[in-house]
Design a protein around this nucleic acid. Structure first.
Lengths: 240, 240
DNA sequence: GACTCGCGAGAACACTGTTCACACAAGAGA
DNA sequence: TCTCTTGTGTGAACAGTGTTCTCGCGAGTC
């Protein structure tokens, strides 16, 4: 509480550094995030930056966490809005979340690339800081699916069909995942959710990284159709 | 034919440069591909490299093309082997190709990252040199699927079901793709193939980039199950 | 009022890609 | 065989990069 003047000033320049770095990330990609460029923006010596940032990697980590957080926030916001519209329609909430998953990614390609692209040259994200926030979108969707499962909205036939194709090892892995993350779902249900998530993420990656354009022209329509198919594949029907 | 001595020596050092660059790519990622490191390997001045390579980007392009080519070769080899085993079992050939698609990627993460990861900082691949080879695996699978379609091996019900979920815009895009690449397939069939390909590529990307490990533990078993499901989703049944 | 210590500056080092003028030697043509 | 073009290699230089030092200043603290 005491040294608020110093602390506030420190926080301000820290924020300014992050804002500058973010701008350069968006405009020029990871390679554009340069300590000297940031220093120029703040009209400061490069060495002064080291009072606020341990290294360039540290700065990238900050941007990475920010990206993960905003991505997860976007998904959360979409889910919340859908639930506010109709709290009973879990299927619609899941679709909204997955829709936002892609929408944010397409709108923020540089951040998405930093978060989900090939490991940045020479930079290895510290799992400690990123892991927790990286799994937030998946966790939210999984939570919704668990609610649906509890309410008996998940088609039993779909579950048994998935169980039939599930080998013991994979099932054990899913059970472990459920236990670790406290998902109240049986292995076949986890499998269905992972199936869907892989498709969503795969599509998003391909679109953002430009591997989709040669294949699918109107990506929006295709993705919408994919979403309805995914909801069905989860054994859910668009309620109400 | 004449100046073979010079030309052979030139080819040799060019190859040595590429081999050195490739080693550094595999061992240290893209950032490890450094003109100075290559020059040290060949015990040569850095500036001498510019006699063989236009720029570092040019060298990366060479590595990129090599990666795409080897990836496609791996898929081709697997398909050929499967066809040699049983030329009639197109489903098995498709599965073999998609299996190789992932296997090569997992075995060569650095090359895969260069080819399919986030755009490398400051480097933009020239579409002219890469596009043709980048689409080879997809093209091969699509060709197999076309053969299956011609032979009437594709379940009509699956096709009509897919057609029902296909909007006009996306269908037109798929028709255009078929025409452009000379795939003798109707839009719903293209849609099925693209669906499957997105899942394969999505899974592979997630595995290579480390986003799968938290979700799916024994990736091999999961992928095998995915393959059989994909073959079924294409309306094919494992023949003979 | 004295003094600590957070903050900024500037130089320096080791890297990177790229370009230049220069030298040398090997192959081509006479 | 002699000349001479041309391919090849060299070292220095320039403009960048991250990072680390020493040096000060001045605002907040006691």
């Amino acid at each position: 509480m005491a040294a608020t003047v110093r602390e506030r000033r420190r926080q301000e320049t820290t924020d300014a550094i992050l804002r500058s770095a973010r701008t350069h990330l968006e405009q020029a990609g990871v390679e554009g995030v340069t300590l000297r460029a940031v220093a120029r923006d703040l009209d400061i010596a490069v060495s002064a930056l080291y009072r606020y940032v341990d290294s360039r990697d540290d700065l990238l980590t900050e941007l990475l966490v920010e990206a993960f957080t905003e991505h997860a926030d976007a998904v959360d916001a979409a889910v919340d809005e859908a639930l506010a519209d109709d709290a009973e329609d879990v299927a619609a909430a899941i679709a909204a979340g997955l829709r936002a998953y892609r929408a944010w990614s397409v709108a923020h390609p540089a951040q998405f690339g930093l978060a989900f692209g090939a490991p940045v040259p020479g930079y290895h994200a510290p799992a400690g800081r990123t892991m927790a926030v990286a799994v937030r979108p998946g966790g939210r969707i999984m939570g919704l699916f668990a609610t649906a499962h509890e309410r008996g909205l998940v088609d039993e036939e779909v579950l048994t069909a998935r169980a039939a194709t599930l080998d013991d090892g994979t099932a054990a892995g899913f059970d472990a995942l459920a236990a670790r993350q406290s998902y109240p779902l049986p292995a076949p249900a986890i499998a269905l959710a992972v199936d869907a998530f892989v498709r969503v993420h795969g599509f998003t990656v391909m679109e953002v990284f430009g591997q989709l354009r040669p294949l699918v022209m109107p990506a929006d329509a295709y993705y919408e159709q994919l979403l309805t198919e995914l909801v069905a594949s989860l054994g859910l029907s668009r309620a109400s």
